[in-house]
Design a protein around this nucleic acid. Structure first.
Lengths: 110, 110
DNA sequence: GGAATGGTTTGATGTTTGTCAAACGATTCT
DNA sequence: AGAATCGTTTGACAAACATCAAACCATTCC
């Protein structure tokens, strides 16, 4: 139907309204920093704990972390059917905080 | 007496042991991110709330934030007499996480 | 020695947070 | 329609956190 992506987007802050302190707070948690590593390849992922290497966490816990990342402006979420496809807001973050994302991803632990 | 700096240093993690998630957690707080802005000039500062633009906070609260920054590896503290001189571990952080500090300081809110 | 000074430590308090479990909502499949 | 699926929401709970106040510890000044 002309929309090559389909679905709608969950609410997220405008690029100009992304706050550094919220981004750092969002990423200052072991689980969410691990998620940054997953999303670093630019691909989109569903929220299934298994697809994210978070098998040890309950799905509601993953949902909670997803919300924090999205509300901080780190990720964007597209809804299609029952699924959510989450990915890094790389362009927006690069525009707002030049060099930050690259430095963070490079600094990620092995 | 041959020591151009004088005093001793408070305990802090070795450069190689600085953890990204702890740095981000330390900086993911409004007060401590404001302190990064203070320390961004590379100078050293005493812990007096007034000298740091933290007049609204109790000195014990400032001391608490200082400890978190130091234990995360963000700052180093030199003790001389009754005073503590705190400054950014810029070289160590640049070595451990190239580009991160520059990007963070550039991203600091006005 | 005694008082003042710069920070730390400890205790108390209210808030935020990470987690799970159960209930729920919407979508898809049969 | 009914069942299965993917994820969210709500509630509960323990742990962590930010803050202040009071006590404390060195050091410096008188």
């Amino acid at each position: 139907m002309g929309d090559e992506q389909g679905g709608q987007w969950l609410e997220q802050p405008d690029t100009a309204e992304i706050e550094l302190v919220k981004v750092l707070h969002a990423l200052g948690d072991p689980v969410r920093l691990a998620l940054l590593k997953v999303y670093a390849d630019g691909e989109q992922y569903s929220c299934a704990p298994g697809a994210l290497g978070l098998d040890h966490l309950h799905k509601s816990t993953v949902s909670h972390h997803m919300r924090i990342l999205r509300e901080a402006g780190v990720t964007s979420t597209r809804v299609v059917g029952r699924s959510r496809y989450v990915r890094l807001r790389r362009d927006d973050l690069d525009a707002r905080f030049p060099g930050l994302l690259d430095a963070l991803i490079a600094a990620l632990p092995a």
